[in-house]
Lab assay of single mutants.
Amino acid sequence: KVMEIKLIKGPKGLGFSIAGGVGNQHIPGDNSIYVTKIIEGGAAHKDGRLQIGDKILAVNSVGLEDVMHEDAVAALKNTYDVVYLKVAKP
């Protein structure tokens, strides 16, 4: 199931950690970017929809399929206060 989640960045950013990407696979044979941690009190935690194990398909208009881990981190960092995440639920 794919959904779009709109998050408003807090003082600590979006409030979640990711793993995965080309050269840094979270699941062997899979280059996808996965949510590995939700920080308590952060934007994602308060919103409640993003969960550990969700796959991040895109940030705003930037696709995160088959990208390097660093590029995924940069895509999440290089955002304004309002961030749209395209997410696939497991």
Rank of each mutant, 00 (worst) to 15 (best):
K1L: 03
K1M: 05
K1T: 04
E4W: 06
I5A: 01
K6Q: 09
K6P: 04
L7K: 01
L7I: 15
I8V: 12
I8M: 13
I8E: 06
K9V: 10
G10K: 05
G10E: 10
G10A: 11
P11G: 09
K12D: 07
G13R: 04
G13E: 05
G13S: 06
G13W: 03
G15R: 02
F16H: 00
S17Q: 12
I18L: 06
A19D: 13
A19I: 05
A19G: 15
G20P: 03
G21A: 02
G21I: 01
N24W: 07
N24S: 08
N24M: 12
I27N: 13
P28E: 04
P28Y: 13
G29W: 04
G29F: 07
N31Q: 03
S32K: 06
V35S: 01
K37E: 15
K37I: 04
K37L: 04
I39H: 12
I39D: 09
I39Q: 08
I39E: 09
E40I: 14
E40W: 07
E40P: 08
A43N: 12
A44R: 00
A44L: 02
H45M: 15
K46I: 12
K46Y: 11
G48M: 06
R49G: 09
L50R: 00
Q51N: 15
Q51C: 11
Q51M: 15
I52M: 09
G53W: 04
G53Q: 05
G53R: 05
K55H: 05
K55V: 12
I56F: 02
L57E: 09
A58G: 15
A58L: 07
V59W: 03
V59L: 07
V59D: 01
N60V: 00
N60P: 00
N60K: 02
S61P: 02
S61D: 09
V62F: 15
G63K: 14
G63W: 10
G63A: 14
L64H: 02
E65K: 14
V67N: 05
M68S: 09
H69G: 08
E70N: 14
E70I: 13
D71A: 10
A72P: 02
V73L: 11
V73R: 10
K77H: 08
K77M: 13
K77A: 09
N78M: 11
N78E: 12
T79F: 09
T79E: 14
T79L: 08
Y80A: 07
Y80E: 09
D81I: 04
V82C: 12
V82R: 13
V83C: 12
V83K: 02
L85P: 01
L85C: 03
K86R: 10
K86A: 07
V87T: 10
A88D: 14
A88F: 14
